[in-house]
């Protein structure tokens, strides 16, 4: 079982805001920083666009984890978009606990446009944590 786990490549969906997180992720690439390619980036204009429905859809469709990354509080390009993200995320976390989806699987992180290194470390940490948690395989669970 342990061997299976270490061969398992987590599939993580990442919602990255264009102004900060996506640009920061680009910077990581431009700087040729190497990090696990397990986060599949989906660009949105603001982390405030991320509807919890999209997060649940990702988990139900086969993702092992979801990353929402936006501008640091106070620096949102749209002033307060990330504030709404925080508000939703806290309640969403509470509900995910009830669904018994482990805490580390859905994360909200702040990455600014100049934090390429930070983005790489966030992805690296999240990938390893989820590798340890194992695959979510929600498709199999929902009919169990």
């Amino acid at each position: 079982m342990a061997e299976l786990k270490s061969n398992f490549e987590p599939k993580i969906v990442g919602f990255l805001c264009k102004w900060c997180a996506y640009t920061g992720a680009d910077l990581a690439g431009t700087s040729r920083i190497k990090y696990p390619p397990n986060v599949n980036p989906i660009r949105v204009m603001c982390s405030g666009r991320v509807d919890p429905v999209l997060v649940l859809k990702a988990l139900a469709a086969g993702a092992d984890g979801v990353l929402i990354a936006g501008c640091h509080p106070g620096d949102c390009h749209y002033t307060s978009g990330n504030v709404k993200t925080i508000r939703r995320f806290k309640l969403l976390q509470k509900m995910l606990d009830q669904f018994r989806i482990e805490k580390g699987r859905v994360r909200l992180e702040w990455v600014s446009a100049s934090e390429g290194e930070r983005y790489a470390r966030v992805v690296e940490t999240m990938t390893e944590d989820i590798r340890t948690l194992g695959p979510l395989n929600w498709n199999l669970r929902k009919e169990a």
Binding site: P52, V53, K57, P73, R87, R88, L91
Partner: peptide, 20 residues
Amino acid sequence: LDQGAKMLSALSSNFDADNE
């Protein structure tokens, strides 16, 4: 698509909170 997640979003978006 999902009634519960939509209500969660609508409700929490309007929480009077600016920090975690």
